[in-house]
Simulated scan of single mutants.
Amino acid sequence: MPHPSGTLAPADPQNLIAQPDYARALRPLLPDEAFTPDRATPIVLGLNGAILLLGWAMARQLDASHWQGLLIFLPFALVMGNAVVVLLFATHDVMHSKAIRQPQLRQAVQLLGLALLWMPPTLWKAVHNREHHGKTNSAQDPDRNYTLEQPPSWGKWIQNLFVPSLEVHPFWLWVGMTSAWGVHAFRNLTSVLLFNDGSTRYPVVSFQVSSRERRRIALELAAVVLVHVAIIGFIGLRPVPLLLGYFLPIWIGYSVVIAYIYTNHMACQITETNDPLINSISLKMPGIVDTLHLNFSYHTEHHIFPGMNPAYYPQVRALLLEHYPERFNLLGAREAWRLLMQTPRHYVDATTFASSCGTITRPCPLS
């Protein structure tokens, strides 16, 4: 149960293995080239950026009265949505590695790669690289579920409404698929830009950034706003082209991204020792999906070796299955989603979930 101080009681530390211990054990079994930057990542970013530019140029020419052209454009909107996903995943890899070494180019790529996600790169470094990877699914992780005892807030209310659980309404789940990423970005952005005191109540976990980081986040956010204004201005203020060429690809991209994020950790137990095999989930996905999404489904593997070339994550998975088969959370996508839909989303303690009112409790299915 929760400690009187309000922190969650951790899972039994005697049964946990820290992330550096896995890395030390597995590193000698992997080739050196697995830890060299993937030089193809900038090419992937460029190709998917070109797809989006082409799509916006096509949307600019759409005429609402010519329904045949609108129907032809719809499949390309799906391709554009996937490009939004790939921009995030590829930029994510760039920011964990040295695939781009030139500082100014690296900063520009990071900004453009995350712009459609409304995520300033400096904020991403803080919330993802530093806070999430350093405190994965612990009581201090800003990406975990809310706890039952956390006070009501608009952030918690939106999670209750949007996030997959046994009490979510199907309509709001679908709305949340297109919107939850934006809520995540807005929650953390406003927390650090407006307050930055580490005590904001509406994020899952409030954290602070330095004064320099805060200034950079504000400047990067202004640049992100200009990117979106430029896209909308280029397409034109016409409802149908904007819907199909701007909003629909972004909604598709956000839905795919958040589907991955939901399955990464949300069905796992809290661990104060950062044990990626216990607090993370990897997915078994079709090969074509892993190719398109840069092996993002290899999430446990990524948490063991964050800066690794993603092409080598299958080798890490094989080693985990060989050496730690009883600990490794490797699930099919449907099974991972089923677990989310059959359990509540609030932590009562490290290994127990509860509904928003606390009337329904379930043990963590992976504990």
Rank of each mutant, 00 (worst) to 15 (best):
L116M: 11
R327P: 04
L62I: 12
L30V: 04
P325K: 02
W157M: 05
V348G: 12
V257Y: 11
L166T: 14
A223I: 09
I304T: 03
S282K: 02
A57P: 11
V163M: 10
S179Q: 11
P121W: 08
P142K: 00
W154C: 06
A34T: 06
L319F: 01
S297Y: 01
I304H: 01
M119H: 08
V192W: 01
W67N: 11
H265N: 05
V256G: 07
F328W: 06
T190Y: 13
P31K: 03
L173P: 07
S138E: 01
P164F: 03
P241E: 00
Q102Y: 13
W154L: 08
Y324P: 10
P325E: 00
M58N: 10
A267E: 08
E220L: 06
Y202T: 15
L29R: 15
F296C: 03
I72R: 14
V109F: 05
P28V: 00
V79Y: 07
R214Y: 12
L70V: 00
H184P: 10
E301C: 09
I217N: 07
C364H: 01
A115K: 08
S297E: 04
Y254W: 15
Y347H: 07
L237T: 05
L74R: 02
S211G: 08
R362N: 11
T136F: 07
E149R: 15
L29C: 13
P363V: 15
H66F: 08
G236N: 03
S153P: 14
R362L: 08
R238A: 03
N329T: 04
V127F: 12
G182A: 12
A336L: 02
G55V: 02
H346M: 03
N160G: 07
N329Y: 13
N145H: 08
F234N: 08
A23T: 12
A99W: 06
